[in-house]
């Protein structure tokens, strides 16, 4: 899922400083699950903004609403009236949600309430870890299901560097060395031969090196008369 963290209240207050009527928009998908921008966080952020700005002597009218997914037009249609009625939208969606609102409601002004951080998993209650870099050319089949792009600090593709010490990365002793994990995993499955095979250079054009990415599925597109 997409992992995000809410911005500090002071930063949010600066972002909404120009507006008198603010609509906090939560998102019911990834950022709900990582406790950053769901319905509960939207309500808490709205209440915090109302109280904080009131204490500052400039009490703002702050409401909140949460949609199932900010990144789909259909769900954004549901809040059209509320968005148009507000001076500003504070999106508690990921960066995609913020941009979707800006794109879907060109007359409105939208600011981000979260810092979108990475694609990852809740490894335990209250802990989230990065797992995928969305490089567009997945090599997990070669690395025992452990991604060296996302989990090696240097995104190395040819084994651990000299900074791997006792299974940990030189950047932080709490960070496991991805290549140690890969080696251990392949070794335990008796599949070390997989990383002995020569691999061609990775195709980075599918990653950010190729510019903004886009997928078009002609089989799924609607014909002009259906759209």
């Amino acid at each position: 899922m997409i992992i995000a963290e809410r911005k500090p209240l002071d930063e949010i207050k600066t972002l909404v400083d120009d507006a008198q009527k603010v609509l906090v928009v939560g998102c019911g998908t990834c950022v709900t699950v990582c406790f950053a921008g769901g319905s509960r966080e939207a309500q808490i952020t709205a209440a915090s903004l109302r109280m904080s700005t009131k204490l500052d002597g400039n009490g703002k009218n702050v409401g909140d609403v949460t949609v199932q997914r900010q990144c789909e037009w259909e769900y954004l249609d549901e809040i059209k009236d509320q968005v148009e009625d507000a001076d500003m939208v504070l999106s508690l969606g990921c960066g995609i949600g913020v941009q979707a609102i800006a794109e879907h409601f060109p007359e409105s002004w939208v600011v981000p309430g979260l810092n979108t951080t990475f694609l990852g998993i809740p490894s335990e209650q209250g802990v989230w870890e990065e797992r995928c870099a969305a490089c567009g050319d997945c090599i997990l089949g070669l690395t025992g299901g452990i991604c060296p792009i996302a989990r090696c600090s240097k995104s190395l593709l040819n084994g651990p560097c000299g900074g791997s010490e006792a299974g940990h990365c030189e950047i932080d002793p709490d960070v496991p060395c991805a290549w140690q994990l890969i080696y251990d995993r392949l070794s335990s499955k008796d599949k070390l031969h997989v990383i002995l095979d020569l691999q061609p250079p990775k195709n980075w054009s599918t990653s950010r090196d190729g510019g903004p990415r886009k997928i078009v599925r002609e089989d799924l597109r609607l014909k002009a008369e259906e759209a």
Binding site: I44, A47, R50
Partner: peptide, 11 residues
């Protein structure tokens, strides 16, 4: 108890 209840009480 949700933090929201506490915030609402103060608000």
């Amino acid at each position: 108890l949700d933090p929201l209840y506490v915030l609402r009480a103060f608000e």
